[in-house]
């Protein structure tokens, strides 16, 4: 999974304009390294705005992985076979792992895990709006793997070359695992398409509901992405929203054909001159409405996440009490 949120402002972005008062030779060294396509590591000097942009992007990315466990988690107990259940558990566990890699990467920038969780749980921080839509039937699980994770891969592969070392390294790990997510989804849909008329209709219905939302995952059009240019300049973002979206569409159309489904866009057609598929208008009003918290599942997702966290409090307390006791015992024995 991933976040579309590269350009989504939230609370942490408000102080973005802060001007650093660091000596200019440090700034020059930073700029020179960026220009040479070098990497920045946690201990290196970096402009405050670079740090804040990364904290916002990486934490939103991490939140998306964690919240992304919920729509699919709903289907673990209802998977159609033991095999599909095992696969889904493995995938959901991967998403949890991806969240942890990313939280760790964000922590190297001086933010704490608690601060980030607080941001998520209080609703201050954003996560990918794709997870604020419901998973209505089993075909949705396949479509999430094929399209949502497919879009994620498009976006995450260039992030492996991000200028911030810990983020890039986390993304390398994530990308290695993401391919399984997309393939298992596509294969689950292939199986359904070989089934009954009703099953084929389920797949088509899921594709119809998710297609446009997946295109919106890449974020607003380049013209409306105020942070994009700076992100590109800093080597945090490597490919623009619109270019990634186009890449995704070009890659997905032939896959839909093999699968035997149609994509719900009458304007979708090959443009010989451009060498790309043309596509219709994305409903950005709906996208922003969901980002603002008014999507069909925003409240439910956040409530589920907060409840899971609170229900786990006793486990964290117990682990800590146990660790403290063990330490005291060791000290006593040594004395």
């Amino acid at each position: 999974m991933y976040t579309q949120a590269m350009d989504i402002p939230d609370e942490s972005g408000k102080k973005l304009a802060a001007v650093s008062n660091a000596p200019s030779d440090q700034e020059a060294a930073f700029e020179a390294r960026i220009d040479a396509d070098g990497r920045i590591e946690p201990q290196d000097w970096m402009p405050e705005a670079y740090r804040k942009t990364l904290v916002r992007q990486i934490s939103q990315h991490a939140h998306s992985e964690i919240v992304g466990m919920l729509p699919e988690g709903n289907w673990i107990s209802r998977a159609p076979s033991l095999k599909r259940k095992a696969i889904l558990i493995a995938k959901v566990q991967d998403e949890g792992g991806h969240g942890l890699y990313l939280y760790s990467a964000a922590e190297t920038l001086g933010t704490s895990r608690d601060q980030m969780l607080e941001g998520l749980h209080s609703g201050k921080a954003k996560y990918s709006s794709i997870f604020n839509y419901p998973t209505l039937n089993w075909a949705d699980v396949g479509v999430i793997g094929w399209l949502v994770d497919g879009a994620a891969i498009m976006n995450q592969v260039p992030l492996c070359r991000c200028s911030y070392g810990p983020y890039a390294r986390a993304m390398v790990r994530v990308c290695k695992e993401e391919s399984f997510h997309q393939r298992q989804g596509y294969e689950a849909l292939l199986v359904m398409m070989k089934g009954t008329e009703e099953q084929r209709a389920m797949v088509q219905d899921a594709v119809n509901r998710y297609w446009w939302k997946c295109l919106a995952m890449f974020g607003p059009p380049d013209a409306d992405s105020p942070h994009s240019a700076q992100g590109m300049r800093w080597g945090i973002k490597r490919i623009s929203n619109d270019d990634l979206r186009q890449k995704f569409i070009d890659a997905t159309v032939p896959q839909a054909k093999v699968l035997g489904v149609t994509l719900p866009d009458p304007e979708l057609k090959w443009n010989e001159a451009r060498g790309h598929y043309d596509y219709g208008q994305i409903d950005w009003a709906e996208f922003w409405n969901t980002v603002e918290g008014n999507g069909p599942c925003n409240k439910e997702r956040l409530a589920t996440r907060v409840k899971a966290h609170n229900d786990g409090q006793w486990v964290r307390d117990a682990a800590q009490a146990y660790a403290r006791k063990q330490k005291e015992r060791a000290l006593k024995e040594a004395a």
Partner: peptide, 8 residues
């Protein structure tokens, strides 16, 4: 929301 999760 109080999240005294991992700080310790």
């Amino acid at each position: 929301m109080n999240t005294p999760a991992l700080k310790d």
